[in-house]
């Protein structure tokens, strides 16, 4: 069975995604792999109180697109203009 992690948005929406996909983000990778018994690495649940549901959904889509891209399936990743500023800020925080 594939390992999954749960990402929770500001409004409480939960996104269950593959651990490999989540690891595209350096910030999430650090949370899940750092030693010291942090709750994120124990439970596989990461909460983002500053990231809205719409943005977190787009970020999860990017994680999967990024994996596909690195495996040779080079498609375009579409971003709606109205999301760009908030998405850029969130992506900056997540180091993706």
């Amino acid at each position: 069975m594939r390992e999954t992690v749960k990402l929770i948005s500001m409004e409480g929406f939960e996104f269950v995604i593959d651990r490999e996909a989540a690891m595209v983000s350096q910030t999430i990778r650090s949370m899940l792999t750092s030693p010291g018994g942090f709750s994120e690495s124990k439970d596989g649940v990461v909460t983002f109180p500053d990231i809205s549901t719409t943005i977190l959904e787009k970020i999860c889509q990017y994680f999967y697109w990024s994996l596909q891209y690195s495996r040779g399936k080079e498609t375009e990743f579409h971003i709606e203009p109205e999301l760009t500023l908030e998405l850029m800020m969130a992506a900056n925080y997540l180091h993706t």
Binding site: Y62, S70, I79, P81, M88, A91, T96
Partner: peptide, 13 residues
């Protein structure tokens, strides 16, 4: 191949 970063993609748009 490394995918372009999300910061880069969103900044371009």
């Amino acid at each position: 191949r490394k995918a372009p970063s999300l910061v880069e993609l969103s900044a371009r748009v």
